[in-house]
Each structure stands twice: as structure tokens, then as C-alpha cells.
Write a protein that binds this DNA or RNA. Structure first.
Lengths: 256, 256
DNA sequence: ATAATAACCTTGTCTATACATATAGATTTG
DNA sequence: CAAATCTATATGTATAGACAAGGTTATTAT
């Protein structure tokens, strides 16, 4: 298992006499290597013993450095195996609209997602720009309705590049999230994302599908997924019924 | 400086022979004490040496436990002084609408907030229920417009209990955030909050103030602040122009 | 060949110690 | 009296070593 990345411990400049703590210098070194893609997701870091002896420092100091990266979610350690670069989490950290599947369940309702359409399309000018691909490239298009107790809550339109040219599996329809669709059909994995949350009114089509009158205020979320080379690989637009959905956030850490 | 809280190290049940790590048991003990208000914000934890000798464990193990709490933001350590319980942060972790002051500045625009009105009102039924106070209690009422380059962006209405009966200071009008208003005029400090983000259409009054046509889609944020006893001490409603504002979130940790 | 075992490597926990650095209060000094 | 210095105490960094426990691989026994 050879490391094909351009990573090497020699590139690190650790000054043991600096006022900056060694563990901090070391943590920043690894963080930089990961951010600059010299260490890729899934790759192993050198073992703690290797790092310690390479720099002539204590293993505990190495552990202190790595624990910073673990806390930041950039690496994960497995007892007996090693420490590995994590897959970037594309969780919604700012708005929780995507995870509303769980919220619906907690309210005792039955969440479901119905696929309205799944087909191969040729990219027009707008889609080509959004996905950074030539005109008329073949892409996958999905139209999905998310329901709670069979009442429509959200309407989603999603596009991914169609690199693998493989058929759409039944199993994918159970989790039609943008990142899993992108992982299944593009030739690379999503590692970063951009989300924009806006408010809007429903169009004629959206009103029909969501079963609301035209012009109902809605949340509108636009999401773009990127791969390691910062190339967009998927694009999606979700519309959430404003009369049925709200975002709640509790701050502070007291019981009761 | 006597600790008047019901905190004592004796209450901790640390099992040194348990499979659960000592540092973890210790961290959970302190977390529980803080959550149950036996250790209040600003109060000092016992020193690391005290804790270590009390339980007959190493100081490094104590530090490991405390570092968990520091990472969780529940305590902060000051070199040479001690370790103290932190004030709960009421930052917007889920939606960043409140911090849009900064965002406006980053776009090279000039943010400003104009006080439309600040007066003492008697609570009606609705406000009494929201703040958990008797009918006709005296409260402070604020109406604020936030502008960017003199264009109105948001309209806010805020209520706080008027416990201190002290006049409204000029200085408060520079930072008319709900938590600073509550801190200034209620008899306790806000330590937790609830925020709800919704979409709506503007009313006649809101349209006039924001300078948009009636029925424009807007973000609507309702915020309630609570003190240590879970008593609501402030309530606010913010309306953000949907045609001028959007929430953007970037996930993943790669450069460029 | 297959299965059980042993050896080895990895991270996880814990100890005891040393010194650095920041703070606050007491003491000394001008 | 006031400023400077010392001293005690607190957290911060770093070390070396021991053992635990999960995981992999090579060895051995059947």
C-alpha cells in the first residue's frame, strides 16, 4: 500500500525552541497537508511512534497534536489500526433543512419521499454553467417530493453528471440525497458543498405539486456539491413549504 | 469568596476500576454539575491539583477531563488564575441571520441600525404569556430598522422585562441586540435561547417600513431568551427582506 | 488446507515528574 | 507612600514509561 500522495514528514518545519508549542505546529502542519490535498480522505497518517521518533519528540506530544485534528473532525483514529483522514462531512451545519427527515419522525409523523421522475437529460446553457460541463452533456435529472403523512412538504429538483453511465438502482431511491446521488453517478466523491437559503413564492408548477395556492411563501435551498478538484458534480434546488416548516434552534446548555 | 452553590467533589462517584475511563467519568461529573446549576457561570472549578489529590489520580488525567469541557465550551481556563464555568454562548449556531451585520460589512456596505421607537408599555395578554409575567406589567419595547447603505434590510420588534426601572442609555442603542437589551434591563442574565426561523409575507406596516410591496416573502425569526431559572426575560421578532437577504453555508475543509 | 494460537503493531489510558508562564498578593526598597 | 521585587499558586507544555485493548499477520497444530 504505497502512499502515492506528495506527503512527507520532511516537509514539516518544527521548531522545538519556538514559543509556539510543538503540538500546535504539528497539528497545523497536518491540517495544511490535508487542506492542500497532500493527504487524501481515507489515507493513513504515519503512526504516532513514527512521527515521534522522526521529530525526536514524545509520543504524548504527537497525540496532543492529533487530538486537535480529531476534535476538528479532519481525522479519525481507530484503536489497533491507525489514524486516517476523514471524509469531509457535508452535514448541514448552518441550516438543518436537509435533516428534517428525522424531525418529521420525532413529531410522530411518517416521512416518505416519492420519486416523480428520473431521466437522462442533455445539459442546456444554464445547467452546463452550473456543473461546469460542455453543452449537451448527458446528465441525470431527478424530481422528488418529500411527504409527511402523505402531505407534500418539499419539492426537489436535482442534477448530477452522468459519468458512470450506469443504470439508476432501486436502492438509490430510498436515500435520494444529493450527495448519495452524486457519489453513485459521478466519477468522483463530493467533498465540499455550498448551500444558499432564500425565501420565495411558489410558481404554478410548484403550487400544484405542493398543493398550496400560488404565491405561498417558501424556503428555497440551492445546493452545489464539489469534488476534490473543486469541480461541481451535482446541483439541486429544494423548496420547502413555509406554512408547514420552520427551523428551530436551541442555544445554551442547561437541563430541563 | 465562598462558593454558595451546592457543589462538592464528594458527590462525584469515580470508579477507578471501571472500564469507563477516569477522565471521562470526571468530565461527565463536572458537566452534570454545570447543567444542574450546582456550578454557576463565573464560578471556579477546584484547582487541578486539588481534584487530583482528592481522587488520588494524576493531574494529567484531571487535565484530560477538563480539556473535554473546554472543547465543549462549558468552561474556560486562565493560566495563573484557575478554571471557570463559562457563560453560555447564545450565538446563532444554526442560522446566522443575527450576525449579518458582519456580512454586510464584508460586502463593502455600510450597516446601520436606526431606533424607530423605545418606550415603556404595559404587557397585554399575549406578551404576558410570552414573558411569563402578570398582566399589565411594565416592559420595554423597541422598534428597530437595520439598513445597509441606508436601504432597509430588516425590521425588528423587541420586548424585555423592565425590572431595573433604569433609563435607556444612549450606548445601548449602538448594540440593540436582544441579549444585550435583556442583560441591561432585566434582573438576570440570559443563559439560553430559542430561535425559530419561518417564512412569511409582509404586512401593511412591514411593507411600509421595509419599502417593499405588500406580500413580499420574508424571513421571520422569533427569538426568546431565558435566564438560569428558565424564565423568559426577552422576546423579539425580526423580519428580513427576502429579496435582499440569503443565508449561505460552505461545508468541507479544502483550500481555494 | 484449515483453524487455533502467538507475536507484533496500533491507538487508548494513566502515572510521575519537570519546567515554563501567567496572576495575585506580600514584601522589600527607593 | 509608591514602585519594584519576590513568592506562592495556577494552568500550559513536554517527557518517558507502563500497561490495556483492538487489529493484523505470521506461525503452529490439527
Amino acid at each position: 500500500m504505497s502512499e502515492q500522495g506528495s506527503f512527507s514528514l520532511d516537509q514539516a518545519e518544527i521548531d522545538k525552541n519556538s514559543v509556539i508549542p510543538i503540538y500546535y505546529q504539528l497539528a497545523k502542519f497536518f491540517e495544511k497537508q490535508i487542506r492542500q490535498r497532500n493527504l487524501l480522505p481515507g489515507e493513513a497518517l504515519p503512526t504516532e511512534a513514527e512521527i515521534a521518533s522522526h521529530f525526536g519528540i514524545s509520543r504524548m506530544t504527537v497525540r496532543r497534536a492529533i487530538s486537535e485534528l480529531v476534535a476538528a473532525g479532519m481525522v479519525y483514529a481507530q484503536k489497533g489500526k491507525g489514524t486516517f483522514v476523514a471524509m469531509p462531512k457535508l452535514d448541514n451545519i448552518v441550516f438543518d433543512l436537509n435533516n428534517f427527515y428525522e424531525e418529521i419522525k420525532q413529531k410522530g409523523m411518517k416521512p416518505n419521499s416519492k420519486l416523480l421522475e428520473a431521466k437522462i437529460v442533455r445539459s442546456d446553457e444554464l445547467l452546463s454553467k452550473r456543473l461546469g460541463i460542455p453543452l449537451n452533456t448527458r446528465c441525470l435529472f431527478f424530481r422528488i417530493v418529500v411527504t409527511a403523512n402523505d402531505e407534500p412538504l418539499a419539492y426537489e429538483r436535482k442534477y448530477t453528471v452522468y459519468a458512470k453511465q450506469k443504470p439508476i438502482l432501486e436502492s438509490e431511491l430510498k436515500d435520494p440525497s444529493l450527495s448519495s446521488l452524486a457519489a453513485a453517478h459521478s466519477d468522483s466523491l463530493p467533498v465540499s458543498s455550498k448551500k444558499v437559503l432564500m425565501v420565495s413564492k411558489t410558481t404554478e408548477e410548484e403550487s400544484l405539486i405542493l398543493g398550496v395556492s400560488r404565491g405561498t411563501p417558501v424556503f428555497l435551498m440551492v445546493q452545489t456539491l464539489y469534488d476534490l478538484e473543486r469541480k461541481p458534480i451535482a446541483w439541486g434546488l429544494s423548496i420547502f413549504r413555509g406554512d408547514r416548516y420552520k427551523l428551530t434552534s436551541y442555544d445554551g446548555w442547561y437541563d430541563e
